[in-house]
Design a protein around this nucleic acid. Structure first.
Length: 579
RNA sequence: GCUACUAUAGCUCAGUCGGUAGAGCAGCACAUUCGUAACGUGCAGGUCAUCAGUUCGAUUCUGAUUAGUAGCUCCA
């Protein structure tokens, strides 16, 4: 075989390569368990999977056995041959594979039905594929997990084997090492190490924030308030518990009940809020508003509770109580586009500040929704046009809107590249009608305002999780729980160290001093493990010169600085919110 | 919620083919007064997640429960 260098940078090459590997996986599984029924096996980001329906439960040992079998298939370097069949013959061909039968039945009439054959194994597949199984070099089966047939939780759960593959063993090893490295940034691990937050068995999905975590949280909230004041928002706070009737009015009773917690007060039924909007509606509706006052932008750091499925909980990323940095904007119809653009730019400003990369999804009308098709179309158009006019690209997430309106979702990545919805902008024509809120127009008549729900962080909890993984715990100075830690070389310099700490503290910095009778190497190691942003070392030289020897967690040694220089440097960095 | 897996000291883990458990780090005491990632000695610390069952005896085997992990479903 002619040695042909694979261009793995090209997406179609990667997909072809991985897809062929998934066929090899299926062939190996069929060889070992001929009774296994095949579902689907696509190439995905970073690898591939194949779904099987099989009584026997795959174990980790099985993955080794399967890998051995795959290596044989690769060694045999079987050619992959495509052929097509007319529909009836195709159905006859796969009659022992019920999932394949279903797939073929769902293909439109007249579609060419394509198969790929390698050795004694044939799979329904549109391709494309590599020419020979021998072209696959380095394979690793990574995990086995359950997955519903066709992603439908009402249908059977199949066994999914995940794997990855690369043109060389070195690339595979590098990839696996990268994953291991990324796991060290996991916010659950760092959160424990830095004592940011904790979740106890007594409250699954209900995180506790520890003092270090509270510093980050409070700094984020301060920043949030400052930025919202600049942009013409006012702040309110609405109650966590409101009576059940309110949730009938809002539509949550009909559309969101399963996710809500309820309680009783004096025999009357109350609900714990899963969203802040109904409270905001009451707040807006308590007085008459003139068209001259619109838009009204009402912000709220609102804590909500939602019954998320136990299997979905994930550190701070997916919890059962979280604080949304919410706001509801009430506006005239002609203000819609500008307001949406304002929020888009606001979100972009905040995410850029942290250096996040993000992508945007436009989520359209779900099956379970309120309002007419026309209203939904108008709302979707408004969101789409605002995006297009701002020159932003986005993907469509069909049927994933909120029950009261379509939304733009802003997704951020965690350390392993999993994306989490953070910011969202939701257009809502329903809630204003349901709560019968209005404004007085220039004609002296009542009119219905349009409303936007929006969040920037999404939830403070999730955002802190993302921040933690993004910075691997080395937070920007303005967020860092410990901004400076002073270490004394011996106890002789305790007084000087405390005087320096006092001066820095008086400038508003968060300072800790380690005057313990320990070796400097030991104290330094500990301070570094704690991810202190700056470490100041104080010994004889520094005490005499009125300085400290500084090391930054991000850029390393900075040499000797006077206390005044240190103070100025850090205050500037905080002021700039440098990352 | 579903499928699979996991649960031993504050943390990271070892271990018991069934006879009630260990290490390192952290903590405490003593010693050391030291210059850039771990000084030493000693002490203390565990209902082996919970509840049942089998057994003379269960941390170990079985079942249920709870919590967690990966993925699916769902969502900020």
């Amino acid at each position: 075989m002619a040695k042909e260098k694979l261009d793995f940078d090209q997406e179609e090459v990667r997909l072809k390569y991985r897809h062929t590997t998934s066929h090899i996986l299926a062939q190996a599984v069929k060889k070992l368990w001929p009774e296994a029924k095949l579902a689907i096996g696509p190439a995905i980001e970073n690898g591939f999977y194949y779904d099987f329906d099989l009584e026997h439960k795959f174990t980790d040992q099985d993955l080794n056995k399967i890998t051995k079998e795959m290596k044989k298939i690769i060694k045999d370097s079987l050619p992959l041959e495509q052929f097509t069949l007319p529909r009836e013959e195709a159905l006859e061909f796969v009659k022992d594979e019920p999932y394949k039968v279903e797939l073929i039945q769902d293909l439109p009439e007249g579609e060419i039905i394509s198969f790929y054959k390698q050795g004694d194994f044939t799979d329904l597949c549109a391709g494309p594929h590599m020419e020979k199984t021998g072209q696959i070099k380095a394979v690793k089966l990574t995990s086995v997990a359950g997955a519903y047939w066709r992603g439908d939780s009402d249908r059977k759960m199949l066994q999914r084997i995940y794997g990855t593959c690369f043109p060389t063993q070195e690339e595979l090893d590098a990839y696996l090492a990268r994953i291991e490295e990324a796991k060290k940034r996991d916010h659950r691990k760092i959160g424990k190490e830095m004592d940011l937050f904790a979740i106890y068995e007594e409250g699954p999905g209900f995180p506790f924030f520890m003092p270090n975590g509270m510093i980050i949280r409070n700094e984020l909230e301060n920043f949030w308030r400052q930025e919202h004041r600049k942009r013409g928002y006012e702040e309110i706070k609405t109650p966590l518990i409101l009576n059940e009737q309110l949730w009938h009015t809002s539509g949550h009773w009909d559309h969101y009940q399963d996710n809500m917690y309820f309680t009783k007060i004096d025999e009357e039924d109350f609900a714990i809020k899963p969203m802040n909007c109904p409270g905001s509606m009451l707040a807006y509706g308590r007085k008459l508003h003139s068209y001259r006052d619109l838009p009204i932008r009402m912000g709220e750091l609102g804590q909500v509770h939602r019954h998320e499925l136990s299997g979905a909980l994930h550190g701070l990323m997916r919890v059962r109580t979280f604080t949304q940095d919410d706001a509801h904007i009430f506006m005239l119809p002609e203000q819609i586009k500008d307001e949406i653009k304002g929020v888009i730019n606001f979100i972009d400003y905040v995410y850029n500040l942290f250096g996040f990369k993000y992508h945007i999804e436009l989520s359209t009308k779900p099956e379970d929704s309120m309002g007419s098709a026309e209203e939904w179309a108008a709302a979707e158009t408004a969101l789409r046009e605002a995006m297009e006019e701002e020159g932003l690209s986005f993907i469509i997430n069909e049927g994933d809107g909120a029950f009261y309106g379509p939304k733009l979702d802003f997704h951020l990545e965690d350390s392993l590249g999993r994306t989490w919805q953070c910011g969202t902008i939701q257009l809502d024509f329903q809630m204003p009608q349901r709560f019968d809120v209005n404004y007085i127009g220039s004609d002296g008549e009542k009119h219905r305002p349009v409303m936007i729900h929006r969040v920037i962080f999404g939830s403070i909890e999730r955002f802190i999780g993302i921040l933690t993984e993004h910075f691997a715990g080395k937070f920007p100075l303005w967020l860092a729980p410990v901004q400076v830690k002073l270490l004394t070389v011996t106890e002789k310099f305790t007084d000087y160290a405390k005087a320096v700490a006092k001066e820095l503290e008086e400038a508003g910095l968060r300072v800790e001093v380690d005057v313990r009778n320990e070796k400097i190497g030991y104290k330094l190691r500990e301070a570094r493990n704690e991810r202190c942003a700056y470490i100041g070392i104080i010994g004889e030289r520094e005490a005499e010169a009125g300085t400290l020897t500084v090391r930054s967690s991000k850029v390393g040694e900075l040499g000797e600085l006077s206390v005044a220089e240190m103070k100025e440097k850090l205050l500037k960095e905080i002021q700039e919110k440098a990352v």
